[in-house]
Design a binder for these strands. Sequence first.
DNA 1: TATATTCTGAGACTCAATCTCAATAAGAAT
DNA 2: ATTCTTATTGAGATTGAGTCTCAGAATATA
Lengths: 142, 142
Amino acid sequence: MATYDPLKRALKKEGLRYTQQRQSVWDELCATNDHRDAEEIYLAIRQSGLNVSRATVYRTIDVLVKNKMVRKLELGDGRARYEHKINATHHDHLICIQCGKIEEFMDEVIESRQDEIVKKFGYKLVRHIHQLFIICSECESP
Amino acid sequence: MATYDPLKRALKKEGLRYTQQRQSVWDELCATNDHRDAEEIYLAIRQSGLNVSRATVYRTIDVLVKNKMVRKLELGDGRARYEHKINATHHDHLICIQCGKIEEFMDEVIESRQDEIVKKFGYKLVRHIHQLFIICSECESP
DNA sequence: TATATTCTGAGACTCAATCTCAATAAGAAT
DNA sequence: ATTCTTATTGAGATTGAGTCTCAGAATATA
Ligand SMILES: [Mn+2]
Ligand SMILES: [Mn+2]
Ligand SMILES: [Zn+2]
Ligand SMILES: [Zn+2]
């Protein structure tokens, strides 16, 4: 047990118990850098031989999102997608509306313009969503 | 019947019939500059004495969105919101996560940066979503 | 007016996500 | 290690926005 164990730290902070199921959800989310939905996480865990329910997957993801270990993406297709935030810096997404591929981008100019816009209104920026829906090169010229 | 009647024009283009229900949905959407959900549109029409079904509201909105007369907004609360595009120029939104108030903004610098980002990837931009979730001044200092 | 075709509405259905609650597991206490 | 308390789990029920079905109603055409 490492001294820096983000899952155990978060669970302790929330007054929650450490369980195999919660560990498996976190492990599976960290296993790739993809942007997967809850069902994909659920199936991947079961594929690996571990038992977990959909309800627990959803409940655990909520804890991880609340503790900023996981980011939730709503891409407008009715299913939320998730990505772990281990070693990740802030970025936004390009989504191919043809094949579903997701790429990441980050633009300092846009980030600071956002702050200025919000400041001009006299508001306080909490978070933002910036998604560029595109046709990727492979879908454009197959 | 005006020569410039966007609803009738769109229906003709789609090979669809003009009906009182479709007119009432379009009228209600144009009645305010708000960002309302389908249920609010539905209730407002019935409030005004006209009869329409939820199914028809949804079906008509789809036609209007397809013909760029109405814009669909997904703000992450599970219900899509709609705004008419009569005399409207492109803009994005600030949303107060406390009271739900929606304000509009438009920033040429951000708009052109988006194009540059997409061009750098070699992709083709189709549309974008840019939402700033904020705490508004009234919610910050009540 | 008669005919062909589209449209409507009530309610069934879908599907992601949430909730329920009895059985189970974790952790604290002894 | 065993007992005890309390949180967690999972199967399945429920929710809710949105979609679908299809018989009856409305519209366009002749
Ligand atoms: Mn990402
Ligand atoms: Mn708007
Ligand atoms: Zn693609
Ligand atoms: Zn507010």
